[in-house]
């Protein structure tokens, strides 16, 4: 599908990302150190004296100058070593490998859920403006935006788990009696399927359902709104009138001509929503005891756990670069007029 030219462009884009990632590394390094609070004091524990605080400072390497610290950090980074998170006691790389997939799995499923609801809803609302379905779309959108994730999450737990007992206990990625599937991707649902273990797949999926719907409800709003607006605009344009006048089937007009043209702004929103979701996971993670990346980052930030914060920001930066690239590529597939170098 990709011509040689396109491949070159992708490589070019990736190369362009390198300076920004280096910039991010430097800025994060400086910013973490500009945070108030002294990690040596914190990690020495409450009863520590001056001497033991100094010992901790030396063992964390914080007695060295910033330049020296940066040199050590940068040379570790080249070998793929992101250091050890003092607050969780684990190497940052391990934490990321374990937690990023947990967050991504949740985010992807939430996105699928909200697309599955938002697209049909938005299209239906656009084709019948001011009908009951348009009003419904309006209500869902307003509710989705105005309900805080934390609140929706707690309501979900209260109704589906506490009152009705249909959802499994909100205990993270798997219920107590299950063990995690052999790791390949660290997406539990996928790993369970690869292992041919349908029971664990079901259990992992059941655990995902409530948090994904909670997140999905929140992201549904911008997607449904954008779908409706973009469709309305496209549906009122000349080429649709022409298509209709030519007697094309309603579904052909709607999906082949209108939707494809409306998809670009939706895709842009999708990219924004996705990156936003990874960040706003924190609250959902707390309610559902989800061992994701958001709560890890917040905890690390609170206790000035430098290595963890730096690792998190770096991982996010790389993720964003890849995400933007993916969206740009999808653009070119949807609309051949868009070039990659634009």
């Amino acid at each position: 599908m990709f011509g040689n030219e396109k491949f070159k462009m992708i490589v070019g884009r990736l190369l362009q990302a390198i300076p920004s990632i280096i910039g991010i590394i430097i800025v994060t390094f400086v910013l973490t150190r500009a945070l108030p609070g002294d990690p040596a004091v914190y990690f020495a524990g409450p009863a520590a004296d001056e001497k033991s605080i100094q010992e901790i400072r030396v063992s964390l390497g914080l007695d060295k100058s910033w330049l020296e610290q940066f040199w050590i950090y940068a040379s570790d980074l080249v070998t793929g070593n992101l250091g050890v998170s003092v607050s969780t006691g684990q190497p940052v790389v391990e934490e990321l490998i374990r937690r990023l997939p947990a967050s991504l799995e949740l985010t992807f499923l939430a996105l699928i859920f909200s697309l599955a609801v938002a697209l049909p809803l938005g299209i239906a609302a656009a084709t019948r403006p001011n009908s009951w379905i348009d009003q419904l779309c309006r209500i869902v959108v307003t509710a989705g935006v105005s309900l805080p994730v934390f609140f929706t999450g707690l309501i979900m737990v209260y109704l589906f788990y506490y009152i009705w007992g249909v959802a499994p206990p909100p205990l993270g990625r798997l219920e107590i009696i299950y063990l995690s599937p052999p790791p390949v991707t660290n997406f539990y649902t996928i790993d369970a399927l690869l292992d041919g273990d349908l029971e664990t797949f079901g259990a992992a999926f059941a655990q995902l359902a409530l948090p994904a719907i909670t997140l999905g409800i929140f992201t549904l709003a911008p997607l449904a709104r954008m779908t409706r607006a973009a469709m309305l605009q496209v549906l009122s344009s000349d080429f649709i009138r022409t298509a209709r006048a030519s007697g094309l089937k309603r579904s052909t007009v709607l999906y082949t001509y209108a939707f494809r043209n409306a998809f670009l702004p939706i895709l842009t929103t999708l990219g924004m929503v996705f990156s936003f979701m990874l960040g706003s996971n924190v609250l959902v993670e707390k309610v559902f005891a989800w061992p994701g990346i958001g709560s890890f980052a917040i905890e690390a930030l609170i206790v000035s756990d430098y290595a963890a914060v730096q690792g998190f920001v770096l991982a996010m930066a790389i993720l964003y670069v890849l995400l933007n690239l993916t969206i740009d590529i999808v653009y070119t597939l949807v609309d051949p007029r868009v070039g990659l170098d634009g």
Binding site: L154, V157, Y158, Y161, Y162, P169, P170, L171, G172, I176, E285, K286, V287, F288, A289, P291, S295
Partner: peptide, 12 residues
């Protein structure tokens, strides 16, 4: 099990 939200811990 680590469950960060106190409300969830109570529900469990």
């Amino acid at each position: 099990r680590e469950v960060p939200s106190a409300s969830t811990r109570r529900a469990l």
